[in-house]
Design a protein around this nucleic acid. Structure first.
Lengths: 298, 298
DNA sequence: TAGATTGTTAATCGATTAACAATC
DNA sequence: TAGATTGTTAATCGATTAACAATC
């Protein structure tokens, strides 16, 4: 069976998006928004709002109305011109489209803080996801309870997955254990994996992986944040000069040596490049993946 | 100041993507992948690998090499033809591009299980993110410690954000409190928000919001999972018949009444629609956002 | 020089958006 | 009927990908 690494990251080409994937012709981008619409509709339903226009619903979901109507057009013609959409009816249709009208047993592997948080997450149960088991490798954790469920030992993984027909696994282990856990889940029959460990998982064809990476989200924010403060005054100086000592020193050296910012496009400047290289040799990895092992206690 | 809801969800148009946004011409999709490359490069750096080809690095990051080279071309010409990329040099350049060579103080608001998990997340510190403070509204939580830091009261939010120049806030409160917390953060000077609460936040222009939604990820997996099992045998029957009692009954009724699946495109079938509507009135919200309040203990 | 690999081009694909005819 | 709002079209935009000339 051919193995392919998943796409990872909160980006357009998440897991399933790699296959032809537009199952039944619904674009991946639309699928990713259906849960948003469902959430907004559920809130309206609780307030007993009978119908809603594309404009109102779009506002509640945080998208524009043209996009929403286009999205809904892939599902069918569920609205009424001049009136809008029936809230209950849409809740049902979207739930059905997403597969939420059936029960989805899931296992959570790695019961640290994050595993705990997920086990307690009410948003799962209310949408058809049922925690079939909590698993951990640590004997000190096994036997304790989280969210009213006993934490069971990894040894039971296969029997639980098989007997309860679990098709979705959630991995909240340290990164070092993630691939091995993934392999066991897949071998036992799991075909969808939600991965919180900061690792690229390799899975056979036919298995979907989605990745949630807390640190990546922050890094993307930092990228934009960086550009807000100075509004491009002279990035080389402003950014590097606020950097930690060694980097700042190297930056100064760079400027003295070449006046460039190491970002000049196409300009072949081996001198600049070599010096920046030297400058970073010392600090090198600066923390790196090693520290991530401490991220999510197994 | 014009307020606009953020785009939310792990989809292409996350927060910042709404503005013209391609700060310095780097596409949003590329920015979202830079952290992946950085992680892979950091791992290589720790193994003291001096250079890497686009093919190797792409494999490690889980993307294809053409995409990687295209991404890097936006940053500059940092490789050497015939050789590849210098690992240390690239680590530095990408870190700089992402703004990780500077220190980013963040506050985490809402210290439940998830807040705890985030406070302990080693991936933050190793990338320049420093937890400036943990905040909570619950007097029983205030004063305890998490990840070695004291949990402080919400009342201190403004003074902390201002005195420590915090520009990034992480919201892990229950959904009901999120918008209010967001408003206070923004008012105090925060311009980037990472939102874990299942709510659409409204923020002024110039403020970026990224959203991480655990339940949405699972729903997307469920959508694809649903299509694997049966491979389109006759979805109306297979899906609805596995649904809970009331829904299944309604489905049967529907089939009897019209033989349609309620999904027929364009075909105006008021009878079918009305009956499906009736059928769902009873179960209605089925849990819904209310339960989500239990998600993340403040 | 020969082999390897980058950086860029151009074609393709998918997603977004405004506008409006259809129709309730 | 008049007003409102959907569902769809078509234009635009952005992202992906293969291929290859440039060049180490």
């Amino acid at each position: 069976m051919g193995r392919s690494p998943q796409s990872s990251s909160q980006t357009p080409d998440q897991g399933a998006a790699r296959r032809p994937s537009r199952a039944r012709g619904i674009p991946e981008a639309t699928v990713a928004r259906l849960p948003l619409y469902l959430r907004a509709l559920t809130a309206l339903s609780e307030r007993s709002v009978p119908t809603v226009s594309s404009e109102e619903l779009a506002a509640a979901a945080g998208v524009n109305s043209a996009k929403l109507r286009k999205d809904f057009s892939y599902l069918g013609s569920y609205g009424t011109r001049g009136v809008g959409y029936d809230v209950e009816y849409l809740v049902y249709q979207i739930s059905r489209e997403l597969g939420l009208t059936q029960d989805w047993p899931v296992v959570i592997v790695g019961i640290g803080n994050l595993g705990h948080a997920l086990a307690n997450y009410g948003g799962f149960a209310s949408r058809g996801f049922r925690v079939a088991a909590l698993l951990d490798a640590d004997p000190n954790v096994v036997g304790s309870t989280a969210a009213g469920l006993p934490v069971r030992h990894m040894d039971e993984l296969e029997s639980i997955v098989e007997s309860q027909h679990v098709s979705i696994g959630v991995i909240t282990t340290p990164p070092g254990a993630a691939q091995q856990v993934c392999d066991r889940l897949v071998e036992a029959g799991v075909t969808s994996i939600l991965n919180f460990a900061p690792t690229v998982l390799t899975v056979p064809d036919g298995v979907d992986v989605r990745k949630v990476d807390l640190s990546i989200e922050l890094q993307i924010l930092a990228f934009h944040e960086q550009r807000k403060a100075g509004e491009e005054p002279d990035r080389t100086e402003s950014v590097l000069d606020r950097a930690p000592g060694p980097v700042r020193a190297a930056a100064a050296k760079l400027r003295r040596a070449a006046g460039g910012n190491g970002k000049s496009r196409g300009g072949a400047e081996p001198t600049v490049k070599d010096q920046a290289e030297q400058a970073t040799k010392g600090k090198s990895a600066k923390g790196g993946e090693g520290e991530l092992s401490a991220v999510m206690p197994a």
